[in-house]
Write a protein that binds this DNA or RNA. Structure first.
Lengths: 151, 151
DNA sequence: GATGAGGTGGGGTAAAGTGGGGAATTAGGG
DNA sequence: CCCTAATTCCCCACTTTACCCCACCTCATC
């Protein structure tokens, strides 16, 4: 499981350094091959390639005549892009994905289980603050059957 | 079960000494490997790694298209960070977590069952005082179904 | 008062993160 | 089809940070 946030810089060429603590694992699990795509919440999702294959096959299996399914396929598969770590452990983000997530300089590189999320630092902080002040989180957590969750 | 509060100092490098009475147990149960994350009350939570894995797997199993579930995942998994005790029994708290809980120097290191809580000393004292002077506590305890609790 | 463990501080070093130059490749326009 | 421009890739170098180790200080105990 990937976890934790790491603040990194996006350089003028659109590269971000993958935090070093993940690199060895990414080399062994996916030979440094990753897939970036968009997220509904205007951040980017970064998957080790095998993980992405799983998602992609699930999406591809959705009914072809369902409009919502097709919208989802277009969003995730259509915007997906393979990237590879260079010798310094950096990945190059395509320009249209940088624009999509409004990434300019400071990036929050967030571990989220089997994938990563890439946020503009300001957007990430705003999300965190919003989650903290949102009382629905505890209410809905209980409603979702997490009442017994011992955090 | 961990219990009791212990006041320790955060040094200039962001390290805190784990109270010695817990160290041996942490070495045997989790090989000195711990996970720190945030709490909604602006303190930090410190879990032995196996304990954290339990929680993380519950969180990871939440539905991906539920906005509240994702907010919870982002908050807890996204801010989680593995830490390891050094030879002196100290852990290094990442800068963003120190900022989050407004930790500067004096820390309350609080045992809370299977985990620990880390509070700024002032915030901890204020919490305690607030809980004592809050006359609604008894009412809320009853409302929460704790009426028959024999302390 | 001596002794030892718990707690604290700091310095040196290796590694992580960052920036940029220049070659190679691709795309677009004349 | 060629020339130009932009992008990507590979390399090197610098700066900063985190980590490891050693040393000291303080307090309780004997």
């Amino acid at each position: 499981m990937f976890r934790g946030v790491c603040l990194v810089n996006l350089d003028a060429k659109g590269r971000v350094a993958v935090p070093a603590r993940y690199r060895e694992r990414l080399q062994s699990t996916c030979d440094s091959r990753l897939v970036v795509t968009v997220d509904r919440d205007r951040c980017l999702l970064l998957y080790p390639e095998p993980e992405w294959e799983l998602i992609e096959s699930k999406l591809a299996a959705l009914p072809a005549f369902d409009n919502t399914a097709r919208a989802i396929q277009r969003l995730y598969i259509g915007n997906a892009q393979e990237v590879e770590m260079d010798a310094q452990g950096r990945i190059l983000l395509p320009h249209y994905l940088r624009d999509f997530a409004a990434l300019d300089k400071r990036i929050a590189f967030v571990g989220q289980g089997s994938k990563f999320e890439l946020w503009d630092e300001g957007a990430w902080n705003a999300r965190t603050e919003a989650a903290l002040s949102d009382t629905r989180i505890s209410e809905l957590a209980v409603a979702a059957g997490l009442g017994s969750l011992t955090l």
